[in-house]
Design a protein around this nucleic acid. Sequence first.
DNA 1: CACCTGATTGTTCGA
DNA 2: TCGAACAATCAGGTG
Length: 166
Amino acid sequence: MKTTKGKATARSSKETLKPVDDKRVGKRKAVAKPEKSSKRQAKKERNAKKDPNKPKRPPSAFFVFLEEFRKTFKKENPNVKAVSAVGKAGGEKWKSLSEAEKAPYEAKAAKKKAEYEKLMKAYNKKQESSADAGDEESDRSRSEVNDEDEEEEGEEGEEEEEEDDD
DNA sequence: CACCTGATTGTTCGA
DNA sequence: TCGAACAATCAGGTG
C-alpha cells in the first residue's frame, strides 16, 4: 500500500486530501528520464501506424469541459494564442466547478468511455486475429455489446442531481 | 516542410 | 499497485 507516498492514484482514497499536483510529471517527460527527449505525444499516426485501428482515448470530463471552455475562452480572449493559457484557465475553472456542474461533463465522458470500450474490443480482437483470424465472429457475437443498442439520451437517469446550493 | 512543445486534468493501459 | 503516456488545441519554434 505505501500510504506514505500514494500521491499518485490517490484518487482511490482521497486525492483531494493531499495536494497531488506537485507537478508529478511536470512535463510528463522527465520524471523517469530527466533527460532524453522522450516526449512522444502521439504525433499524427503518420509514422506511428503501429496499430491499425488503435482507438483514441476518449476525452475525459475535463476535456469535454475544456472543449467548451476553449470556445468561450477564445471568444473573450481571441488574442490569446497560447494553448497553455486555455489549459491553465480551464484547469482553474474546472476545479472551481461543483460536482453537479461537472456531472454533465462526466456523463458525456462516461458515454465516450463506453464507446471506447467497444473500440477496444475491436482493437484487441484485431491484434488477436493477427495470429488466427476466423472465429472472431463467434466470439464477437456474444461479446459484442448487442448490435444496435443506441441508448443515446437514455442517460440511465443518473446525474441531474440539481444540487442547487445557491 | 513536418514535427515537437507547452499546459491543463482525467482516463486508460501495461508491467 | 503504481507509473507512465496520451487525449485536444494551436501557434510558435526547431531540424
